[in-house]
Design a protein around this nucleic acid. Sequence first.
DNA 1: GAGGTGTGATATGTTTAAGTATCATTTCGC
DNA 2: GCGAAATGATACTTAAACATATCACACCTC
Lengths: 100, 100
Amino acid sequence: MQPENEALHEIGGMIRQARLKAALTQEQVAERAGISRPRYREIEKGTAAARATTLTNVARALGLEMILVPQAMLPAIHSLMRPHEDEDLPAFAPLPDGGL
Amino acid sequence: MQPENEALHEIGGMIRQARLKAALTQEQVAERAGISRPRYREIEKGTAAARATTLTNVARALGLEMILVPQAMLPAIHSLMRPHEDEDLPAFAPLPDGGL
DNA sequence: GAGGTGTGATATGTTTAAGTATCATTTCGC
DNA sequence: GCGAAATGATACTTAAACATATCACACCTC
């Protein structure tokens, strides 16, 4: 195994998490994406770079979409993806149904 | 020239617009992205699929970032990128079906 | 413990992305 | 008009993505 690009690892990890979350097997995703299982496995593992078109197909097979966005927008997008915590919710706000 | 994927065309067009907006030559972007000008030209024109890593490098050379997002989030992201018109519903407009 | 399923892993061959080199065309300023 | 720069375009070669096939290992259930 080679030095491997770090970005490939991140992409692979994200792909894998999406697959597990969707409760799909490697074979199922590979077939949906139109690639072979060994190929999908390497993409998920991050040991080999895929083509942009292949990565797009894999992403779509998992309900994801590959897009290009201005770097300046990244923070806003990330906060969109994490509406929970870290924002403005008071940790001890009076819950509506504060039962006893 | 081959049948060409439609998605490649869209990506290429976006890349090209970003380049022109940044007032950079093909050669400059190609060098920043670490690829040759003929290769960059084909990517911009959409006649050939690039690797995901290559596309990432090209995008970054233009101030863009390639990311994977849940498909359900696309509308929200697009409205982020188009703060203009189209989303101009008055906040307190009389709703058409305010059932009463 | 035999069979089925999901995954890890490798070998071989084909396809294609990408580099280098080269030439033609357009658009500048001089 | 005449170079210089930017782009369009192609041929030839190399490196890598991808398919196909195959084996091994873990986990399960019967």
